[in-house]
Amino acid sequence: MKKLGRLYLITDTEIQKKYSHYEIARIAVKAGADVIQLRDKNKPSGLIAEEAIKISRLCKKHNITFIINDRVDIAMVSDADGVHLGRTDLPIREARKLLGNRKIIGGTAHNLAEALSCQALGADYIGYGHIYPTKTKFKPEKPKGIKKLSEIVKKIKIPVYAIGGIGPENITDVMCTEVHGAAVAGSVLKSSDPAKTLKNLRKLIYGC
């Protein structure tokens, strides 16, 4: 079954050097992330796959969804639950041919047209952003803001995750748009206590 909870954490070892992907995943499992995405565009494939295989096992054990950014091959080798495809990665249709209908495929969208296209091509969810200013990834465009996010959410039927600059200080505003969930990286990984920040985000999302 395709399980897509609301709190989506991206492991990033570029914006911080303190934790490896696997260490982040361990923290995320304990602190209650619903989805973990491994994102690494620089390391040799063998090293990424080695961590992906370990994280995949960990996530299966704890019933957490594990997604690989961009690399369908690594998702296959590690038996991850799916992939997230950015605008320049493999087309969604091609990825679907390889992964079949039981795996999750997410797409990135920066506007309504891209979001509709992802949906039409059979994506299981969309990452839409960036909502707020962020330093995690270089962004030539202006942040979208909450209003545009609301518009997207109203028009898209599959789950949308808001992404970009989301942390404890603004996640309530984000969730008020009735967006399905939020994807976070910097606000958690660069905080002094990532587990605590994640737990806090979880409380704010699920309201308990």
Partner: peptide
């Protein structure tokens, strides 16, 4: 790239150093 090899119906892949383990 296993994915690219499969999508192009290529004969196979080559694993350089630092790549995937054969068993995987």
């Amino acid at each position: 790239r296993i994915d690219i090899a499969l999508l192009t119906n290529s004969a196979g892949i080559h694993l350089p150093g630092n790549s995937f383990k054969l068993k995987d």
